[in-house]
Nucleic acid binder design. Structure first.
Lengths: 207, 207
DNA sequence: GTCTATAGAATGATAGAC
DNA sequence: GTCTATCATTCTATAGAC
């Protein structure tokens, strides 16, 4: 699952510098969005000159495309791991758990996509409509099977995915709001988030 | 609840033009974020010249601040309506329902805040830390009371709010992804979203 | 491969006529 | 209040020396 073709053969120094630029670009694009980021910022973060950055990637757009492509693969991976033969509630909860963990460990990846989609998904639009739609459709059929077998509450599978995505990515994407609202002196943020999400997914809010 | 002082006295034409600019600016800022928007775009959308827009608001930042301030009030309103004496599950579900309806009817307001927070909340940071924190703290105490009385599952109130916010605003903020994944020929998007969210909040995914 | 210098375009903001 | 013209800055991208 990718939106770009495989990388061409490179010398060692090329690969290293490209990787350094990609890392810096993830930092910058995820925080400021495409338009809000400058090649200068990326160069500074990577510890290179602007001209040198543009030697490896001809255009700002090319850097952005490369970062999106590299991040996309890993970001969507866990969805594929949902096991049709497992216990439905367990499988969904484990998926949610993995997504929450990813929001915690790779918040920049989450924010990169959030920025991209929020601003109309100009670059990954085709990917969403084809590769992602295909994958999601398969997983929704699995979930619909569980519902038909009476192993899952009568919900709309697609919207269960939306809820899991939104509830978990929220902790990365809305971090400034979360930091503002939760007591700075308690270290239980993700622990409480996990417990509450598990409770709601498995049994709802009823006492 | 506001982040700006009350408007000063204005002539009729001033008020009309300022309103026209604010409407156009909500369009533009919510789609492209602060840095991604230009005064020219706002002027075009408002049907005015750039110079004339800057006659009413001296700086681009001033337009942005005005849009945020006007939108903030209405956006947070329903949280205040949660009734401590009502049935806990009903109150929370009704709040979620109102939020979902707002995502549908005012998606640009949702995206405006999403852009602002995603990029570090530079303008509303202080608002989040004071006014919003105070309001949320009050509501969380109400919910904690419900839990202590055994009327609500043992969850962390703050994270229940996060889940309701994220799950509902997702339909506005991630619209391009949602449009890509749901069958274009079915008109039941918000209906299914509401049903699924209600099911999960009230009884979870268990069959 | 990396640097300095700079061209060329976009953008925020102002001046001044009407 | 509104317009045209323009300045000043920022930014992408390229040229050319080393």
């Amino acid at each position: 699952m990718t939106i770009a073709s495989a990388p061409k053969k490179r010398t060692r120094i090329q690969a290293q510098n490209e990787a350094k630029i990609i890392r810096a670009a993830l930092d910058v694009f995820s925080t400021h969005g495409y338009r809000g980021s400058t090649v200068d910022q990326i160069a500074d973060t990577a510890g290179m000159s602007k001209a040198n950055v543009l030697y490896y990637f001809n255009k700002k757009q090319d850097i952005y495309g490369a970062v999106l492509a590299r991040t996309l693969d890993v970001w969507l991976d866990p969805l594929d791991e949902m096991n049709p033969d497992g216990n439905p509630i367990d499988e969904l909860w484990q998926y949610a758990q993995r997504k929450l963990q990813m929001s915690r460990e790779a918040p920049r990846a989450s924010r990169l996509f959030a920025n991209e989609i929020l601003q109309g998904a100009p670059v990954i639009r085709s990917f969403l409509h084809h590769e992602l739609k295909e994958l999601v459709h398969r997983k929704c059929q699995v979930m619909q099977g569980w519902i038909n077998d009476g192993k899952l509450a009568p919900v709309t599978p697609l919207h269960v995915l939306f809820l899991i995505w939104s509830a978990t990515q929220h902790y990365a994407d809305f971090d400034p709001q979360i930091q503002a609202l939760h007591d700075a002196d308690d270290n239980t943020l993700y622990h409480d988030a996990e417990r509450t999400l598990k409770t709601i997914l498995t049994r709802g809010l009823a006492p």
